[in-house]
Simulated assay, not measured.
Amino acid sequence: MHVRHMERRLREMNLEILSMKEIGGAHAGNICKVEALSENENTREHYIYKEFAEKRDQEVEIHKNIEEILTPFSRVVKVWETSPKAMMMWDLGYPVKAGFEALPIGEKKILISDILKVLTSLHCVEAVQTNLPIHQLSSEWKDWCLEQLGKLGSRKSWASPKWERTIQEVNDRLDIPHYQSKCPSVITHGDPHLENVFYKDERIWLIDWEWAAIGSPLRDVTILMQDIYDDDLISYVPEYYLQCLRERGFILDNDDFWSDLSYLYIDHLTMMLAWEVEKYFQGHLSEKRIRGIIEWKIGEIERVQSEVMDRKNKFSH
């Protein structure tokens, strides 16, 4: 963290730093909480200052391109495009994920519904002249996941070779890397797992927009789904999302919807499985937790693969 740069930047905003605390974790850069005194209004405010790691500063360009679109969904105060590239936002407290598992199922469903309403609002924004990249599936996450599981297998006797076989098999049988999304393209956040979702001032807010792109709306829905470890809630997500779309007059072809959902869900389960293993390597997850995560995600991949094959067999007869 370039503290001198941060101090100078805040002074230029007429803010005096009262305290700062670096936030640990697996972040794409350095992040700290800042309490500052506004010299104009003589009030104490709480911010998050994020200094981007090298080659992980796409979010700066994203905000420059679609700042007006993002305003209802994020609480960014200022973005610095000069080195070191950085961003300051209001402190939103703790991510939804922090207390999600402890919530009763009814409260989980309400929270998930609120998140899906926000995603629906984003997906219904007209995607014109955004200069955002186009999201396409590739072999990137499969390759990374196989690499991560291979490392895990070489280090831990409890790691099952079956996990790698499952990842390879589903990608071969369904040809995941070459799947072309079928639903109309929309603006997508690209990474709305529960650590990037916050509830503050009776509203849902989204952070970390570095993977924003034009793509299938099911891209966001499935990244959210892979963070939910409950069969009923996983079934609820696509059904409620469809309801939200219908209420906005956004109608998707049923076959296209479930096709995108299946393929993107498998791809994102694979991606986040690799990322969770990385968090375990970095000491952020216990052995018990990572084993549970892997078993769940592998089970979901097998379930969805079976459903896709059943649909294909049904149509072929």
Rank of each mutant, 00 (worst) to 15 (best):
V3G: 00
H178L: 10
H46S: 14
L132M: 11
R173C: 08
A213D: 08
D260I: 04
V308N: 08
P217Q: 09
E164A: 15
P72Q: 12
N42H: 13
H27D: 08
P72E: 08
I17Q: 01
W163K: 04
S138E: 14
K314L: 08
W275F: 08
V308I: 13
L233P: 02
N30M: 15
L285H: 05
R4H: 09
I301C: 05
G25Q: 13
V197E: 01
H178E: 08
V197K: 02
I31E: 04
F73K: 03
D208Y: 02
Y179E: 02
Y199S: 06
E61C: 03
N171W: 01
V76S: 06
W296K: 10
T120E: 09
G24N: 15
S262P: 01
P72S: 12
V79F: 08
Y240I: 11
V237L: 14
L15M: 15
L10W: 11
V34I: 15
I293R: 07
K314R: 11
N42T: 05
V76A: 08
L194I: 10
H5L: 06
M309S: 04
F281H: 10
E126P: 06
D255V: 09
I115T: 01
Y94E: 15
L285A: 03
Q282E: 12
T222C: 11
E51D: 10
L146Y: 01
L261S: 00
I214V: 12
E51I: 10
V118S: 06
G93A: 14
L70W: 00
L122R: 01
A53I: 04
P84S: 05
H123Q: 14
M271Q: 07
L92C: 11
F100R: 07
L15A: 10
T222I: 04
H178M: 05
F73V: 09
H135V: 02
Y265F: 13
K109Y: 07
R4I: 06
S286C: 07
N40A: 13
P217E: 04
R4W: 01
P192F: 09
M271E: 10
I105C: 12
L103V: 05
R155S: 14
D260T: 02
P72N: 11
K162L: 13
V60G: 02
I176W: 01
I69V: 15
V34W: 03
A28P: 05
L264Y: 05
I115W: 00
K109H: 07
C145T: 10
E247D: 13
R173S: 10
L116R: 00
K200G: 02
P161D: 13
G24P: 07
E169C: 12
T188P: 03
L132Q: 03
N30H: 14
K288P: 00
W258T: 01
S160G: 06
I251F: 11
K200I: 03
F198C: 04
S139C: 13
E59P: 00
P184H: 11
E59M: 08
Y263S: 04
M6R: 09
D267Q: 08
Y265N: 04
I176H: 00
E147Y: 10
E140I: 15
L206I: 07
K142A: 06
K64S: 12
K162G: 06
D175E: 14
G24R: 15
I23N: 07
A53W: 03
T166N: 05
R165F: 07
L122G: 00
P217Y: 06
G99F: 12
D143W: 05
D255E: 14
E307A: 13
D208H: 06
